[in-house]
Simulated assay, not measured.
Amino acid sequence: MASVSIAGSNALLIVLLIGLAVNVCESFSVASRRTRIGSSSSLHVQSIAPTQQAAVAFELDNVYKQSFDIIDECAASGRPSDQLFDSVRYIDKNSIKLYPDEAAKLELWDRAHGSWRLSLATGGGQYNTFKTIPIFAYAMIDDKCFGNGVGLNANTIILSLLGPHYFNAKRRQMGIGIEEVFLFSKKVTPFVPQFMADGMNLGKTPDDLKGTKSRMPTFTIIGASDRSLIARGGTGGIAIWTRLENDIRPAAYGSIAIGSTS
Rank of each mutant, 00 (worst) to 15 (best):
G147M: 14
F85Y: 12
C74G: 05
G114E: 06
E107Y: 05
N148V: 11
R79T: 15
D143R: 13
Y64W: 05
V63W: 01
T156P: 00
W116R: 03
K144F: 09
A121P: 00
E59P: 01
S95P: 00
L152K: 04
P80Y: 09
A139T: 13
R79N: 12
A137G: 10
G124W: 02
W116Q: 07
R117C: 07
M140T: 07
I70N: 03
I96S: 09
K131V: 15
T122S: 11
N155T: 15
P134F: 09
Q126D: 04
P134N: 08
D101V: 09
N153R: 03
I133N: 03
S87I: 10
M140H: 09
L118I: 11
P100N: 08
G147D: 04
D69A: 15
K131L: 13
D61G: 05
I71K: 01
T129D: 08
T122H: 00
D82R: 10
D86E: 12
Y138N: 06
C74P: 01
N153F: 08
E102N: 09
D92Q: 11
N128V: 04
I133E: 05
A121C: 03
N148F: 13
A55D: 12
K97R: 15
D101C: 09
N62Q: 13
V88R: 01
A57E: 07
T132M: 04
R89I: 02
A137P: 02
A104T: 06
N94T: 14
Q83I: 00
D110C: 03
V150D: 00
N94H: 09
S81Y: 07
V56K: 05
L60A: 01
I133H: 04
Y90K: 03
A121T: 05
A75Q: 02
N155V: 09
L120S: 05
A57T: 13
G149C: 07
D82V: 14
A103P: 00
A55F: 10
D101Q: 04
V56C: 10
V63Y: 03
S95K: 08
F130A: 05
L120V: 08
I133T: 10
F146Q: 03
N62A: 14
Q126A: 13
S81N: 04
A103W: 03
F68D: 01
S67P: 01
A139H: 08
N62T: 13
F68R: 09
L152P: 00
G125C: 00
Q66C: 11
E102K: 14
I141F: 07
F58T: 11
D82L: 14
T129F: 14
A54Q: 11
